[in-house]
Amino acid sequence: MKPALAAAGLIPARKERESWGWEPSREMTHHCWRHTYVGVQLGVGEDVVSVSHRLGHASVTITLETYAHFMPDNGMRGRTAVEAWLGAADVSKTP
């Protein structure tokens, strides 16, 4: 991957005399695009199980531990559902 990025001029060429060789370039790799993809999918409310499957994760737990911060509403759907349920029960008329 890094030789291709260097050939495209996206990262510096390998430094032969350096012990570590390549410049850090994680932001220019598939990881950047992978995180962007997941962010878009979860941001619009895509099912986390489906996203996890597409990513090839062994379990949904891995996906949630890594990407839960991309999920929208911060619990608003759950609160809205409970409020609607309580409203439907009309608790204001109970003694």
Rank of each mutant, 00 (worst) to 15 (best):
E46M: 14
L55R: 05
W20D: 11
E27S: 15
G43Y: 11
D47T: 07
P72F: 13
L5F: 04
T66P: 06
C32I: 07
A68K: 11
D73M: 13
G87D: 10
A6G: 01
R17H: 12
T66S: 14
G39K: 13
T36H: 12
R54K: 11
S92L: 06
I62W: 01
M28K: 11
A13M: 02
G39R: 12
D47S: 07
H53N: 07
G9L: 03
R77C: 07
M28L: 14
R77I: 08
W22C: 01
T36D: 10
T63N: 00
M71P: 08
R26G: 14
T61W: 02
A84S: 02
A89Q: 02
A13Y: 01
D47R: 04
A4G: 06
V48I: 01
A88P: 01
A58M: 09
K2Y: 15
F70L: 12
A84Q: 05
V49C: 11
Q41E: 13
T36G: 08
S59R: 01
D47F: 03
A6I: 01
V40R: 12
H69V: 15
H30F: 08
R77S: 09
A58I: 10
L5A: 06
R34D: 06
N74H: 15
D47N: 14
K93R: 04
M76A: 15
T66K: 15
G45E: 01
A89R: 00
G21N: 03
R79E: 13
Q41P: 06
G45N: 02
P72Q: 12
S19F: 13
P95Q: 01
T94R: 06
S25D: 05
I11N: 02
L86P: 02
G43E: 09
P24W: 10
